[in-house]
């Protein structure tokens, strides 16, 4: 049993999960393949000279990992985006670990570390931290978009939908975890899941039917699949296209040399 007690307090329709995730992933792959096909129908030259690997690597660290170009536009602008970026990457990595745990042998060190060992606590802590980062970044971005004034950003349904998707995903994730903790006798390890533990305190003492938790779990699983399927067809595709553009531009911009001071 994990330090968080048992996961078996409500029914989880895993078959539905597998089907819905497969559908989501299939649509994602088809969409991305169509995007790649679209890009490669361009016949003009992308690079004027030989690509500069050095410039691309430097800019990858500075503008993709550290996002200095956002910092140049303002601290809060940078904070919003870097919270979403690293939070999203964190959740993605934790999901990958979750998938691996379904595949690796039950007696492997990896499985034991993340299910009954201290890895479980770190996993829970990292999950809450990453979720909180996405929540804060997406909420701040949404507020920023609807801030009134002459500089307010022109916002359309697609912009709101993308941020709303992120917020809903993280909020339902936290809610699920909070309800599970609330239905389990408290243990010190709960503190690692610090956001969900706090939320669990808000619903403590109330009986939540298992069927409602199953419905919420199903909704969350469907939402994740829908989000994955939505990426190639929405502005969320920028999570792949923008980094690609940034590194290509770094190589080309080096020819002119006035955009990236640190490349000189």
């Amino acid at each position: 049993m994990s330090p968080f007690g048992t996961d078996l307090i409500y029914y989880k329709p895993w078959l539905f999960f597998i089907i819905i995730q497969t559908i989501g992933l299939t649509i994602f792959i088809m969409g991305m393949a169509d995007n790649l096909n679209f890009y490669y129908r361009g016949k003009a030259r992308s690079f004027r000279n030989n690509p500069s690997l050095g410039a691309m690597i430097k800019v990858f660290f500075n503008e993709i990992l550290l996002q200095r170009q956002f910092f140049a536009r303002g601290f809060f602008r940078w904070l919003n985006h870097i919270l979403i970026f690293w939070g999203f990457l964190g959740l993605l990595s934790l999901s990958a670990i979750g998938v691996l745990l379904k595949i690796v042998p039950g007696d492997s060190a990896f499985f034991e570390f993340f299910t009954v060992g201290s890895g479980y606590l770190y996993y829970k802590f990292a999950g809450d931290l990453a979720g909180l980062m996405v929540l804060a970044g997406a909420a701040a971005a949404l507020i920023g978009r609807f801030t009134t004034g002459p500089d307010s950003i022109d916002t359309r349904l697609t912009d709101t939908a993308a941020l709303g998707f992120l917020l809903l995903l993280v909020l339902t994730g936290f809610l699920l975890e909070a309800l599970r903790l609330a239905a389990t006798p408290w243990a010190p390890a709960f503190e690692y899941s610090f956001v969900a533990d706090f939320m669990a305190g808000l619903v403590a003492g109330r009986q939540v039917p298992g069927s409602l938790m199953t419905a919420l779990w199903t909704f969350h699983a469907t939402l994740t699949a829908a989000f994955v399927a939505y990426i190639p067809f929405s502005k969320m595709v920028h999570i792949f296209a923008a980094p690609a553009e940034i590194v290509i531009n770094a190589s080309e911009e080096e020819l002119r040399g006035d955009l990236y001071g640190y490349l000189r």
Binding site: R41, D151, I153, D154, A241, A244
Partner: peptide, 24 residues
Amino acid sequence: PLSCLSPRQLIELDACSRCGECMK
């Protein structure tokens, strides 16, 4: 025709997240 554009330029169409910076 897409042939007038480079693959990079077609990627650029997807790279824009309509963040609004250009508007300012």
